[in-house]
Computed example of a mutant assay.
Amino acid sequence: MKPILLTLSVAALAACTSSPAAKTAETPAETRRAITQLLATQTAAWNRGDVATFMQGYWRSDSLVFIGKSGLTYGWQPTLDNYRRNYPNAAAMGQLRFSDLRVTPDGPEAAHVVGRWHLTRPGLGDLQGQYLLVLRHLNGEWVIVADHSS
């Protein structure tokens, strides 16, 4: 009798803890596609001169960190403020292009991207560099939680 009771208890516990409706983790290929789409959306926003929409790809948190030539910036709003100060209009923003992208899933909830960026800015001079992005899957979407651009 005890083995049957134990078996029924284990089966009931398993039924309560597993849900057929639960979302399975993304595959590495799905993660790469989602992050590549995020970067494409950011690029399109930047190239329209829309910094606010570009920033939607970043974690809206005081814990966001941006590392650039001027040092460390913590927080979503200070990062947005820096972008607006350094790129005050569409001409200064130029046209952004990412290349040599390497999107690497680091697990179901984290990934990083290494690549190059290039801004074409006629009359102002082009800018370019490399970057490392750290992303997390938060609230159902991928967001940049750390950006080291040089």
Rank of each mutant, 00 (worst) to 15 (best):
A45R: 01
G140M: 14
D100I: 03
A12K: 15
A34R: 13
N86K: 11
G123C: 00
V134I: 09
R97D: 12
Q56F: 01
G115R: 02
K69F: 03
R33C: 10
A29D: 11
R121H: 09
Y87W: 11
Q37L: 12
T43D: 01
G71I: 11
S149G: 14
G107V: 09
P3G: 10
A15S: 11
T53F: 10
G57Q: 00
A34C: 11
E30S: 08
R60V: 05
V113I: 10
A15C: 06
T53Q: 10
A14C: 13
A14E: 05
R102K: 13
T73R: 03
S19N: 15
N86E: 04
V143S: 13
W76N: 03
N89A: 03
K2G: 13
V65Q: 01
A52Y: 01
L6I: 12
A91P: 08
S18F: 09
Q77W: 14
S9R: 08
G125R: 07
V51R: 00
Q128Y: 12
T27H: 12
R32C: 07
L135A: 11
K2S: 12
S150R: 15
L8P: 08
R102T: 11
A110E: 03
N47Y: 01
L5H: 14
N89R: 05
D126M: 13
D106P: 05
V51A: 04
N82K: 13
Y58K: 07
Y58F: 06
R97Y: 07
L132G: 01
S61W: 15
S63N: 14
G94S: 07
P3R: 13
G71T: 10
D126S: 06
L39W: 01
G107F: 10
E30L: 04
W59E: 10
V51C: 05
T104A: 10
G129W: 04
R121M: 00
A12Y: 03
M93G: 09
R85Q: 11
I4W: 13
W76S: 07
L72D: 11
L124A: 02
F98S: 08
I144R: 02
W59A: 06
H118Q: 04
P108N: 15
A29W: 10
I144S: 01
T73D: 07
N139K: 14
T27M: 08
T17W: 12
G123D: 09
A21H: 04
G140C: 13
V134H: 13
A34I: 05
L72T: 07
K2V: 11
W46K: 00
S61D: 09
D50Y: 08
R60I: 05
R85D: 02
I4D: 14
A29L: 10
A34M: 13
N47S: 04
Q128H: 12
G57C: 11
I35P: 01
T36V: 02
R84Q: 01
P3D: 14
D100G: 08
V113F: 02
G57V: 06
G123M: 08
D126R: 02
W46M: 02
W46R: 00
R136C: 06
K69S: 12
S150T: 09
G123T: 06
T7M: 09
R32P: 05
L8D: 10
L127D: 07
W76C: 06
